[in-house]
């Protein structure tokens, strides 16, 4: 069943087509890697999928409904309820400790619950770092807090923009391990990456160039 469908999406800045008539269908439970050179429109696409931005033209069908014309406010609610975000630059709140950063996502979603937040941190192997501030955590640990925050509200879809871009190999493997686990549990994953190794972990690999999809193939080597 389709979770989300982009139909003839374009995002135009002035005369620059950051996305140029892109169509993409994402199935529930699918793990997709989006790859492409810098400036090819990956983040722009993530923003639109993540309901943080609206396309200039085209439709975004989410759970069978076109949301491309919805108000900002409604988009925020939708994204909050269905989507977990993982950022390349982590984006943790620097004066809140790890568990509090996770609880912020609960706070804006439903109800903060420290026990649940701790459980989420435990899932990413950070239970003993719960009271540390971001400045007291390594890059890999911060990224894992960010993942714990993304999955705390059990989203249907996790969007990760270069989640391993700033990590060494050991931490990259930890993060990929978590993604595999989430995929097994049925969460849809869209991962933007430059790294072919990370791309090869996905079920399906989509390539973007100059705002257009240049290839969209099943990954034969997928081990899921």
């Amino acid at each position: 069943m389709s979770l989300l469908e982009l139909k003839n999406i374009s995002k135009i800045y002035g005369d620059l087509h950051a996305l140029d008539n892109v169509s993409l269908n994402i199935e529930k439970g699918e793990w997709i890697a989006i790859m492409g050179p810098s400036g090819s429109g990956k983040s722009t696409m993530m923003n639109i999928i993540g309901c943080l931005d609206r396309p200039s033209t085209g439709e975004v069908i989410f759970d069978g409904k076109d949301i491309s014309k919805e108000s900002r406010r409604r988009l925020t609610e939708l994204h909050r309820d269905k989507i977990g975000l993982v950022f390349q630059q982590f984006h943790l709140i620097n004066y809140l400790n790890a568990v509090e950063n996770v609880m912020v996502a609960q706070y804006y979603h439903s109800m903060p619950d420290e026990k649940e937040a701790l459980a989420a941190l435990e899932r990413v192997g950070l239970k003993d770092r719960a009271k540390h501030l971001p400045s007291q955590l390594s890059g890999g640990e911060q990224q894992r807090v960010c993942i714990a925050r993304a999955l705390i509200n059990s989203p249907e879809l996790i969007l990760a923009d270069e989640p391993t871009g700033n990590l060494d190999e050991a931490n990259e493997n930890i993060v990929l391990g978590i993604f595999r686990q989430l995929h097994k549990e049925g969460t849809s994953l869209i991962v933007v990456t430059h790294d072919p190794e990370v791309g090869e972990e996905a079920q399906r690999i989509v390539r973007l160039d100059h705002g257009k999809i240049t290839s969209d193939r099943k990954n034969e080597g997928f081990k899921g």
Partner: peptide, 13 residues
Amino acid sequence: RREIGLRKALGAN
């Protein structure tokens, strides 16, 4: 600003 953007991305109105 980043914190505010982040909070909004997490669903803050």
